[in-house]
Structures are given as C-alpha cells and as structure tokens.
Design a protein around this nucleic acid. Structure first.
Lengths: 345, 345
DNA sequence: GATATCTCTGCAATCGATTTTAATAGACTT
DNA sequence: AAGTCTATTAAAATCGATTGCAGAGATATC
C-alpha cells in the first residue's frame, strides 16, 4: 500500500506539502501542487483514513440507532439522515438494535470510544437519566423518541395533537364508539397517542370505554388480533384508530375476515403514512409524519452540535398531516381543505 | 478524555501491560490484571478506537452498497448482513447509492482508503472489469448482483429457473397469453428473469408476443402503467408476471381500476415475497427469495475473505420457492406440494 | 538599504494504542 | 553457586497522516 511519504519522494517535497495539497490548504505554489497531484495520480495514492482519523480525532461518521431497519417508517427516516450526512462528508453506521437494550448500549459506546463522532437515537430503551447524561457528554439527537422534562436535542412531531386530530376525524364523521389500538406503552410516543385519543373523546363528551383500548406492538398481526377482540365486544366499535399503519392494515384484515366491510361497517384510521397505505383496499386514511424531513433535520442538528455551533432551537416539532383516503368513508366534512388522492407511491 | 497512560500510572504499570490486560493476552499476573481492571473502572477508561484502528490497520467495519434502503427487499438482506457482522464484532457502514454511479464509486473507495475492511455490493452499476479488478485487490462479495463469466464471490438465487417456474405456474393453470413486466434491463437479474420467462413459453410452445413484454423500473407505478397498456392490447393477457412484487401490486391496482378482477379476469404473480404480498387483496402469489439468508451467507463469505480463509465455494446459489397464494386462482395443480397459507407477516 | 511582511516549504512532534524487543526477578538445574 | 528457564513487565518502535513552528526566499514598506 503506497503511502504519503512515497508520493512526497516522487514529487520531491515533504509529506507535509503532500498533505497540504490534498487538503486544499492555501500557501502551496501552483507548480508544487501540480507536481504532487501528478505523483498522487501516478502512484494511485489513496490517503489512509485510519491514520487521518486518529490525527484529526474524528471519523466523520455517525451512528444511527433504530429498532428495526426493515420497518418502512425507520428506513425512510434513515434515508433523510444519510442524505444530509453525505452532503456534509459524513458517513452513517447502522445500529439496528432489534429492541435489545444491550445492543443499544453497545452502539452508544461507540461514541465514547471515539469511533463515531455522534449519535442519533430513533429508539431509546435506556433510562431517561442515562440519555440525559449521554447528551451532556457527547453529540446526540433524538429522532421521534424524546424525553419529557429534559432539554435534550430532539426532532419529532406532536403526537398528542396528531392522535387527537385523527380521533376527531372519526368523531366528525359521526362515530361514537371508537376503538383504539395503542403501540407498546413502554415508548413515550405510544403513550402520547393514547393521550391524544383520550383528549378527543373527552373534548366531545364521549365516554371512554377501557375495553376499546388495547395494547398492540406495531405489528400487522397484533392489529389483526386486537381487532378480532374488538369485534367480539357488544356492540362492536364502528371505527378504529390504530397507532400505526401496519396495525391498521391488520385491523382491516380482521374486519374483512369477519365478513364486514371497511369503511361501511367499521372505519379505520392509521398513523405514519407509509407506502403501504395506498396499496391496500380501501386505501388507508392516516396521519402523515414527515419521516424524511425528520431525518434531515435530526442530522442537521447533530452536525451542528458536532461542529460546536450553538443551536437556536433544541427541540424541533414538525407538522403532521391528516391524509384522508378511503378507509373512513367520505363525507361533506373536509379536514384542512387538502385531500390527498394519489393512487400510487 | 482519559487515556491508557493514565490508567497505567494509576495501576503502577506500563501502557503495554494495560493493553495486554484489555486484550486478554496471557502472561499477565492475576494481581496486575486486577489492579489494571480496577484503574480502568475507576477512571471509566474507554480505549480510543481510532488509535487502535490505525495500529491494527483495521476498523472491523464493512460497507454495504445498495440502491435504496427503503426498499423492503434490500432492507431485509441488510438485516441478515448486519446480524452476522455484529456476531463477529464487525460494524456495517450504510452505502445507499440511490442508483448513482458516482456514489457507488465513492463507497467502494472507502475500502481503498482502509476506512472499511470489506465491501458488499448489492447493486453494481460500474463496469464488469472494474468489479473484477476490485474483487482481486480487496475483500468483496456480490449479493444478488453478479457478473457473468468471472469468478467473483457471489451469493444469489437462480433467477432464470425461478422466473421459468413462475411462468410455468401460470401456464399450468391454463394461461396462454401471459404478459411480462421486466425490471430495468440494465441489471442482470432483470435480464435473467426475462430469459426464464422466454424459456417457459418456448418449452410449452407458446408464441412469444413482444407487445406483452414491457420494461418496468421495479416501482408500483411502473407496474400500474404497464398493466394499463397490456389491458389495451387486443385481446388482453389473461395473466401477468411482474419481475418484483411492487410492480405486481401496481398491476393488480390497474386491473381493478379497469373494473376487472384478480385472479378471475387476470392472474398476477410477483417476485421476491416481501411482506406486502400478504397485505393486498387477493394475496399475491410470488417467488420467494431467501433475503435474510442471502445477507447471512454474503457476510459470512466476506468475513472469511477478510480473515484470509480459503473459500470452498465462491459462488453460492440459494433456493427460491414458489409461494402460492390467491392472485393466480386455485387449481388442482400444486407446485412442490407446499402451499404457504400465512395470513399475516 | 534595512526592516517588515508575505509566500512557501520542511522538520519534527503528535494523535493513542499495540507490539516487538529487551530486561528483570525468581525458580529451577546441574 | 553458576547457568538456564520462565513468567512478568517495561521500554521503545510503530501505524500514517496532520500541523505548529521555524526558516528561507521574495517582495513590499519606510
């Protein structure tokens, strides 16, 4: 493997000059610059990043910790994260934890070991206090996840309002018995969505029925199973709000298997707006999260922290949007005026 | 940031001894070992990976180059890749190219710069000869992608046979006019699938009609658009084979929009077996690729190459499987005896 | 003409862990 | 008691690029 000193010899300069040429530093005469570049080309020299990393004490790499890369919600966020990272000369190390606390900690440790310059947490099983401590000693941004009461850099949406809006959409369509499939209640955004659901019912003076609130795990299967339970309740709900789109689709499956129809017999609304929404029948009405944008902003924030810039805003809340499709039925009522009618992705 | 020499001082030993303790080398007395470990704990010492990487000339990291992380096919492969990497103490650097040749080359360069120890190519736009050259100078494994005629480490399925089998499934169900939606013909597996389709028709003496072969781009929309064209042909095909599941779902959409039914009016078969298949209605019959397994084997192969082990097999071809669901209709005919009947993911 | 300023380049230190080589103490042999 | 081993530890070289400092030469300023 050819190294800098060999290039230096060939170009009859010192390694420092080669380094300066390659890092586009000023104060190198045009003539020397050319000679060096020729030598670099001739020897097919590639600087050794491991050496460079050590000297600069930075790998220009960031680790992204998420629970499941095959989940379209997270992969879209990841895409936004990577795009911004790349534009700024950074790389993304994948940290798929599969919800393992141990792995999560291992990935976080990569920052302590200086192997990566920063950390994006799109999932966080570790304790609040630990996250706080970590955020104080190294560059960290929470994407989607967040911690109540602490001032940790975060990019997310307002899950409470969003869930309230989804629920109100159903209420405005005339529904009174609305089932709610929560996400895992261990994560805060699941609790927030539940809170939003409750708020909407309260606001419209609809009694809350605990039998119509069940905890799912974000999987299609859990949506299916819980919907089956709901349909066994007497009388069954006329509408269901699922905390993510996969569970909503599972619920739709259950409804159809029972010989009932969506939205005629039961209306269904989801959350996230993944591509799947427009591929099922009827197309799924849902709350759209700006997934890609969350990624963009989270990485921009992280890079600012890494560069030592002051953050104007440490907590960014992006706008969600109700996307009305077919699974709740049509009505004179229109939310926000805009109705998405895209057929394909 | 506390470094090794400070630990050494506190434990009253030399840095070399600290290093030996931390790397579990023998020839360290139990007493010293304990003293060092205590010092490590007390100072909360974490070895600097950048320094370690330089000295060992390895980052224990591998870059995975793929065209689109949000594509469920690739994200599943990636999961397999990462799982094996992690079990072996390696990390995965994400290389989402968005089909850009420039980015692809940039990621490949990371190996030349010694920033990563190896390379998995799940997409390859660069020229054959270049791939060959690269595979000779650094650890590389092709996953799914492959290069004809050269002996480059590869893990894939037999796309020709798989496509032939899919087509024969339709033929065995009585179809004679079978449309085919190809993938982008720039990638070899698309050409292979087309080849398999042609072989099946030839084998059963069905005339090949060029109007029933159209090039898609693996997107739902292209499947939809091409199916619309097929339905305008007179007479339209009674069955369609799409080179991936997304296009198949797009085709199904088109058929329904025309007021026709799947599989009654037109049978549809896809390729890949992504989770979406069981979520659409009717559920999509398809060819299942062992995505996760491809990832597993590709990474195992790469790590062997990195460790300098000889490969027994340099080209691994994994088994695909026809998964019969609902989109082609039922029939007395059963392929392979096994019929998948899972409802959810 | 002397001094200050600027441009360009080289030397040598540095980043922090790892590893080769050497050294020391004690045990064991003969 | 001298010589040989063995176990353990320290010292020093090393990985390869980067960068602070110094110095040489050229140009500008007074």
């Amino acid at each position: 493997m050819v190294k800098m000193i060999e290039v230096a010899k060939l170009a009859r300069v010192s390694p420092s000059t080669v380094s300066r040429v390659l890092s586009n530093s000023p104060y190198v005469s045009e003539e020397t610059r050319q000679r060096v570049l020729e030598a670099v080309k001739l020897l097919e020299y590639k600087p050794n990043r491991l050496a460079s990393n050590l000297r600069k004490m930075s790998s220009k790499t960031v680790v992204v910790v998420l629970p499941d890369i095959t989940n379209p919600f997270f992969s879209k966020i990841l895409q936004g994260l990577e795009d911004v990272a790349r534009e700024n000369g950074y790389h993304v190390l994948l940290g798929d934890t599969g919800n393992s606390l141990k792995l999560e900690k291992d990935f976080i440790d990569l920052v302590r070991e200086r192997f990566v310059d920063g950390l994006i947490l799109a999932t966080a099983r570790i304790r609040k206090e630990e996250i706080l401590a970590i955020s104080q000693e190294m560059p960290v941004v929470l994407a989607c996840e967040y911690v109540e009461g602490y001032d940790i850099p975060t990019v997310s949406i307002d899950n409470i309002s969003a869930a309230r809006q989804a629920t109100e959409h159903l209420i405005n369509l005339g529904h009174q018995r609305i089932g709610f499939i929560t996400g895992p209640l261990g994560v805060i955004l699941s609790r927030d969505r539940l809170k939003g659901y409750r708020q909407a019912l309260l606001l419209h003076e609809i009694p809350i029925e605990e039998a119509l609130i069940q905890e799912g795990d974000f999987s299609v299967k859990s949506g299916y199973d819980i919907m089956m339970k709901f349909l066994a309740v007497n009388p069954p709900p006329t509408a269901v709000f699922a905390s993510n789109d996969e569970m909503a689709v599972g619920a739709m499956k259950a409804i159809k298997h029972k010989g009932m129809r969506v939205p005629d017999d039961v209306a269904v609304i989801g959350f996230d707006d993944i591509p799947l929404c427009t591929l099922v029948e009827p197309e799924l009405t849902t709350i759209a999260q700006p997934k890609y944008e969350i990624g963009i902003q989270a990485m921009e924030m992280l890079l600012k922290i890494i560069k030592g810039e002051m953050l104007v805003k440490r907590q960014i809340v992006l706008a969600h949007q109700l996307v009305v499709r077919e699974s709740c039925g049509y009505n004179l009522y229109r939310q926000g005026g805009e109705v998405e009618t895209n057929i394909h992705t």
